[in-house]
Nucleic acid binder design. Structure first.
Lengths: 133, 133
DNA sequence: ATAAACCTTGCCCTATAGGGGAAGGTCAAG
DNA sequence: CTTGACCTTCCCCTATAGGGCAAGGTTTAT
């Protein structure tokens, strides 16, 4: 199976597939005599893993670690479980940050409705933003 | 006022200040005969604006636009108000995305507790991630 | 034999806000 | 006059997941 066919079946671009190989998350396939990458169908399963991992917010680098464990003959489940938990913790704190930001922005929107542009002093550029609450 | 003094008073690094100048968000100051940047105290007000804008999640590029309006003699309040609102909308949708991701991760954590590593098939690398719900 | 449709590698590009460090100029005090 | 503490510009680096493009090789059909 040539790269474009694999790409189509996996719903990816050929660029992405070559990228995965370079990152080390997809094994280098055999080559045809002409030098073309020649994948066997297993690659699809690997790409499914990559897609699932990515949609869980794991980076290609983390996925490579998981694959490396598996290649060393270990069952990576415990490691994956840790990755997932630490990712959730990270997402939790990111959400908290964004919620804080959101409330700041909402307060600025309130202020924008209250303030009169005529009162805005050039030295502050814009009093909506600059004036501290 | 030389750059390191300005940096200290503003709680920034000299690197950041030069960066702001290059981005166009801080006016190039006068120079001493020796070529050193020589700031007058107004720069502190500008830096306060930048800090406030950054903490509202606005990029230096957006802040530059705001400053450009002000320099053109306009009152940038309406524009700023729009920026803030669209930033809030952006943050809202980002929070929604992250909450979705968070629930996926929580589901994966559940699954990880349920599944037995012994059942994990190497072709999937890791069944916690790969198996679709 | 030639065009069309593939494929290859390689290099630079994106966005963001600077940090790190090099090579060298300036200024004050000793 | 030299040392140390400043300052200057310049260029590369970070993380992330590829996209774009160029120059060139391969395969298949006509």
């Amino acid at each position: 199976m040539l790269i474009s066919e694999l790409a189509e079946q996996a719903g990816l671009t050929t660029k992405a597939i070559r990228h995965y190989e370079r990152i080390g998350v997809l094994d280098p396939p055999n080559r045809t005599p002409g030098g073309y990458r020649d994948y066997d169908p297993e690659a699809l399963a690997r790409l499914a893993f990559i897609r699932a991992g990515r949609s869980a917010g794991l980076t290609l680098g983390k996925l490579r670690q998981v694959i490396a464990l598996r290649d060393r003959g270990e069952t990576p489940c415990a490691h994956v479980s840790d990755l997932i938990t630490s990712k959730r913790v990270e997402v939790d704190s990111r959400i908290a940050e964004l919620e804080h930001l959101r409330s700041e922005l909402a307060a600025l929107e309130q202020r924008a409705r209250r303030l009169d542009p005529a009162d805005c002093d050039a030295s502050k550029v814009c009093h909506i933003i600059t004036t501290q609450r």
